[in-house]
Design a protein around this nucleic acid. Structure first.
Lengths: 219, 219
DNA sequence: AATAATTGTTAGATTTGTCTAACTTTAAAC
DNA sequence: GTTTAAAGTTAGACAAATCTAACAATTATT
């Protein structure tokens, strides 16, 4: 089908589009750690395959075909992460690197089997939605914890920009998906939040952290 | 570490050496479906990395380093096959293609976890030995069923040249590892064998089949 | 032993994905 | 509204892994 390399470009385009809206050659270059001229020639190649809409000096956009392909790769990535956590006992902070490689495996049976064993999960271990078999993503509308106010109670639904570093930090604070969090107060000058969750503990979360936690309001 | 391509050459060299003793550029070329000049330049490159002993017009030999690297790749392949069969419910005829891809994943944790979940298996689903963590293989000395005689009773220990086609054939005859087989007679003119196993069944196995079944004599 | 067939090697072209250097266009700053 | 900075593009080089064509060495055949 597509090369390992092409798949990485598609995936990066997909993810960047969902984070920032418009995607530039420069963004792609930074995220992939590949120089701009290389990216430029590659997106032209992808445009030739009708995976990307490309016009000089204009933002990059995936075609419908490109979105579907990207969605299917991300599906493999997220199913793998879920499998690694649920069936192999890895921590949510350990699975990205491995899934990054396994997502390129070509074998419908393999991923279908994972899906089946996992009971057709809708989200991955970080709360991100798993695209369906057509590559379509069912976006869950969460809001950032940082956009919530004092007195509100929320449930932690997903984590974004989930680097190993950040996930280890969350582990150390016993912060996990599904956790009910009460916002006690918000410091207006630095945006830090005092919250409580779990065993009566009281914790302070910096804005850097609360911006990366996606929640739904409850009660 | 090494490229995907290099790993495939090492694995092929290792397997060929264990099947035929000496390995030629031509053998490698055929097994990898890569033209001889390409193979020639590649083995020189591997020689440059001290993985292969190379001299013009002489048979190819893996160095100790090469054997170790190859053993570790084969370890990953066979652990994966075992995992797919034991933990994911695949049939022994379905796992080769998938393992062929997963063997190139770089992640000690991933394979260690498989190993642990499987209880540190010594053989794969086809009876081939799984190299240890240093890449060393503990060869099991089986003999071919075709080398056994009438009246002998044997246990099926391994299958060689196990293509999907062949394994499906074995499935259809209910032939599986560990099965006790009694040799009733051997046709001298074509080498075919009349055997019995399982539920009193009587089967005839062609030489083509009995040459690919490795057994140990029992009682 | 001479000849034919097979195997191995060399040389040079091709593709993919990368780079650097130089130039152009668009956007930002003053 | 110039000028400067950032982003984008073009051109050309390069490494990895492949190929074909031509030639050389070894092995097999008669």
């Amino acid at each position: 089908m597509h090369s390992h390399t092409e798949e990485n470009y598609l995936k990066a385009l997909f993810n960047l589009a969902n984070e920032k809206g418009e995607v530039s050659v420069n963004d792609l270059s930074k995220i992939l750690a590949i120089k701009m001229p290389t990216v430029n020639s590659m997106v032209k190649k992808l445009a030739g395959k009708k995976l990307v809409h490309y016009e000089s000096y204009k933002p990059l956009r995936l075609t419908e075909k490109g979105k579907k392909e990207a969605g299917l790769i991300i599906r493999k990535h997220r199913l793998t992460e879920m499998f690694l956590v649920q069936k192999m006992g890895f921590g949510w902070e350990q699975v990205h690197e491995i899934a990054e490689q396994i997502e390129h495996i070509h074998s419908p049976y393999f991923f279908d089997k994972m899906d089946e064993m996992l009971g057709y999960p809708k989200i991955d271990p970080h709360g991100s939605p798993i695209p369906d078999k057509t590559g379509k993503v069912d976006w869950i509308r969460y809001e950032k914890l940082s956009d919530c106010g004092a007195g509100e109670t929320v449930r932690l639904g997903a984590v974004i920009h989930s680097t190993e570093e950040f996930l280890k930090f969350l582990n150390s604070r016993k912060l996990h998906l599904g956790l009910k969090i009460k916002i006690k107060s918000v410091e207006s000058f630095d945006g830090s939040m005092v919250v409580s969750y779990g065993k009566n503990s009281t914790e302070t979360l910096s804005l850097t952290v609360s911006e990366r936690l996606l929640v739904e309001k409850i009660g």
